[in-house]
Design a protein around this nucleic acid. Structure first.
Lengths: 345, 345
DNA sequence: CTGTTAGCGCATTCAT
DNA sequence: ATGAATGCGCTAACAG
């Protein structure tokens, strides 16, 4: 599918990048000496060093890191980042956080977007292993993740982010989906909104299931049981959320509040509330700008998406440093905390 | 299916990934035959092929693409993407667009974030060249871009995105900053808002300068001259934009409309308008959700950020295919169009 | 201090 | 249809 070979140069190959030998020849030394100079090896005659450096800059020579890594038996010095949807700000922040940590360790990030397609994920991961990445961070797409086990990856360390692996053990960074949803829902209930509807992610998605669990738990702790007919687990964008909210709110026994599983859903619900002019309180996962300017009470579950990426990268770096023993040791799981923020009406 | 990695030495280095020779030995053939099988070379005995493939799957062997590319004298099959701020949705969409096109060509994306620091950009670019990327897409940060010329990059093709290079010629993809700003401002003027303030980016930024030019041009075309004291080029986030807008609007001779150079500025201005309860029309670059629900008239300059990334990637692929002749041929410049959308009061 | 030898994993060329 | 030699660019390990 995507195995189109990288385009070589069909025509006249341009002036090939100079090699160490080119530098060596021009400086009247051996390649080894050039190598030593570039490696900051102290035991090189200062005069020789200067001469070499002069030629290096004259020729615009750059050490070929690819060949270097090969010779040193090292991986590529890159880590793979496989996300499901880079257009989602959550994942671009995650990428940013991961990039920061990787950068500090001198590692580069190779990006892949799966668009939630398990098949693409498979190919991507395969390709990254073939490129000898040091490790990878994956937001898993499909249901089965056996193809992501260290074994089938030839030992390349993997860290899961945002969603846990199923069927295998591996380091994982999650958001406190359950706790955040529970706290936000509890907030609504505590404010006297006793009938809270649910709008959002399908249960097949880990985050969807967890947030629904939290919504439910908050009710139980308040001695309540949510009404199933106030639960809508279909909407996935602003438009469908708006429609679902309209349908939920525009009737006799409508709920007096809604819990939404992400900010797109919240925005859709908000539109419905505005159109109906009803006194409905909103709560939702994901903070967003303007939440305080909406004119209706909004409770938001906020968290640091960058931190998810940073932690994932740190876990991965740990594994990478462990080398062969990476597969040993317990899989670690860390949960990034959430904060519930209440914006006044 | 189940691969049992050979138990490695108890020391440090884990079970090294199997090589072609390992496969060859186990299959009782030469490495060359394995290579041929993996290359889909037809002239291999079908029986031999099957035997080899069996061992490949048994050992979980993966061809080392790094070594392969080195041997073939090819670059790494990756393209570098250097952006100034991945947290900005514009750039994450750009990345997504570039990834799509790269993916189709079988190329991977290597990501780097400069945080607008020229020094980081320099290092990043240097590193990418050393890693032998096929080419790179850069949103340039500093003022001088000579370090990004094909010459100082050893011939690695570069495409500029969002901002043009200064001092060198290179393929570039821009957004119609001028046209969009002009049209949005003209819209305000046509609606009878004859006094339009300006809020936004410093002129040092290309986009800031262009959008200001557009703002100015719209006035001239209407036979007007903007009042300098209605221009605020300092604000860079919501808070500072809100403050600047407050200061601009809360006085006798306040403008009746504001043009904002990006959506963060627009949101800040909106906050000020809401707080003052004044009849102020807003126009701004960048579309955003909820623009139609703000309760004040808002005109927005919308454009396809993915398209910027896609076009940049296509230009780059062109250059890459040209091979040595990449430096030849005119630098091409393409401008992604903008659409002005008017959201009712 | 500096050079020579050898080889990382793979594929081209030339053999058989 | 298959294998042996050779080298991509680089560097550890040994000379000297």
């Amino acid at each position: 599918m995507n195995s189109v070979p990288p385009s070589g140069s069909p025509g006249s190959s341009g002036p090939a990048a100079p090699t160490m030998r080119d530098v060596a020849r021009r400086a009247g030394v051996s390649a080894m000496t050039v190598s030593r100079v570039l490696k900051q090896d102290e035991r090189v005659n200062p005069v020789t060093r200067e001469r070499v450096l002069a030629v290096v800059s004259e020729l615009g020579y750059r050490r070929n890191e690819v060949a270097r890594n090969l010779r040193l038996g090292r991986p590529s010095g890159m880590i793979g980042l496989v996300v499901t949807n880079l257009a989602n700000p959550f994942y671009s922040r995650l990428a940013l956080g991961a990039e920061q940590v990787a950068e500090e360790a001198g590692l580069r990030l190779v990006l892949g977007n799966t668009a939630e397609q398990a098949q693409r994920e498979r190919e991507l991961v395969e390709d990254l292993v073939s490129r000898r990445v040091d490790g990878m961070i994956v937001v898993p797409a499909g249901a089965s993740h056996r193809h992501l086990s260290p074994a089938s990856l030839g030992g390349t360390p993997v860290v899961f982010a945002s969603r846990p692996p199923s069927g295998i053990e591996a380091d994982t960074v999650l958001v406190d989906d359950f706790g955040g949803a529970r706290e936000a829902t509890a907030q609504l209930l505590a404010e006297g909104r006793r009938s809270v509807g649910f709008l959002g992610n399908p249960p097949a998605l880990f985050t969807g299931a967890e947030r629904f669990r939290g919504y439910w738990a908050a009710h139980e702790e308040a001695g309540l049981t949510p009404r199933e007919d106030w639960v809508r687990r279909g909407p996935h964008d602003i438009a469908t959320a708006e429609a679902a909210a309209m349908e939920l709110l525009d009737r006799e026994d409508a709920p007096t509040a809604l819990f939404c599983t992400n900010n797109r859903i919240t925005l859709g619900a908000y539109r419905a509330v505005r159109r109906l002019g009803a006194d409905i309180a909103l709560a939702g996962f994901d903070d967003f700008e303007m939440a305080d300017m909406l004119g209706v009470p909004v409770t938001v579950v906020s968290y640091d998406a960058d931190e998810v990426g940073r932690r994932a990268a740190r876990l991965l770096l740990d594994r990478i440093e462990q080398g062969a023993d990476a597969s040993k040791g317990q899989a670690r799981r860390t949960v990034v905390p959430t904060t519930v923020v209440r914006y006044g009406a």
